[in-house]
């Protein structure tokens, strides 16, 4: 089987609509949900100390629990923090099962040294991902190609593909970032 990675930034269907569709039996909505939040689940798991194989297992477990419990999710707008919370729990379970010697405490997780000082908490990560998914699609594509992709695409390439002038890319990117900041604030205020 090939291991092509799927773009995680292409859609902006609202979480509550995705949840509704998944409850109805819409398989494509289920796939969109995981393209969007699978990377969140795996990142949470990696931060807690799971290796990449374990993170894949955590993803499967979270998906099963989500499938079992989706009907009991009272506020579908909280899908992202809900999934991140399950991911956190399942990651500690997996570490406890497989590496009992590690004896991890929830608050002293083996974390990537980069995050020792300024560890972005699980909820922040969920909020960030949720906010990103609410950006207009062009912003998602632009930020993905200019800031997230490693190495990033050139302004020229992005301008050509988006039918924009190369000089407008910088200002648009900035607007997208500001918009992202606003969306994060809005989600923080609504307690999501």
């Amino acid at each position: 089987m090939s291991h092509r990675r799927h773009d995680w930034t292409v859609d902006r269907q609202l979480d509550q609509e995705l949840v509704k569709a998944c409850r109805r039996g819409d398989e494509e909505a289920w796939v969109v949900l995981w393209r969007r939040y699978g990377p969140l689940v795996k990142s949470v798991s990696r931060r807690i100390g799971c290796d990449s194989e374990e993170a894949r297992d955590v993803l499967q477990r979270v998906a099963l629990v989500a499938l079992e419990k989706l009907d009991s999710l009272r506020d579908p707008k909280k899908l992202a923090p809900w999934l991140a919370g399950i991911a956190r729990f399942q990651s500690f379970e997996i570490i406890r099962e497989r590496r009992p010697a590690a004896l991890l405490q929830e608050d002293t997780a083996v974390s990537n040294p980069r995050y020792d000082d300024e560890m972005v908490r699980t909820e922040d990560l969920a909020r960030l991902r949720q906010a990103f998914a609410q950006l207009e699609e062009r912003c998602q594509r632009l930020l993905q190609r200019l800031m997230l992709k490693e190495p990033p695409d050139s302004y020229q390439d992005v301008a050509r593909d988006e039918n924009l002038s190369a000089t407008s890319i910088g200002p648009i990117r900035l607007r997208c970032m500001k918009r992202l900041g606003k969306l994060i604030e809005k989600l923080s205020r609504s307690g999501s």
Binding site: M1, V31, R35, R56, Q60, L64, L67, D124
Partner: peptide, 25 residues
């Protein structure tokens, strides 16, 4: 924020992972 987004972008799902999730559903 940017580093976290990069980190998640690196964890994008591949075909095999999406396929297993599809089967589960």
């Amino acid at each position: 924020r940017i580093e976290s987004l990069r980190e998640m972008s690196r964890e994008s799902l591949d075909d095999a992972e999406l396929h297993r999730l599809r089967v589960l559903y």
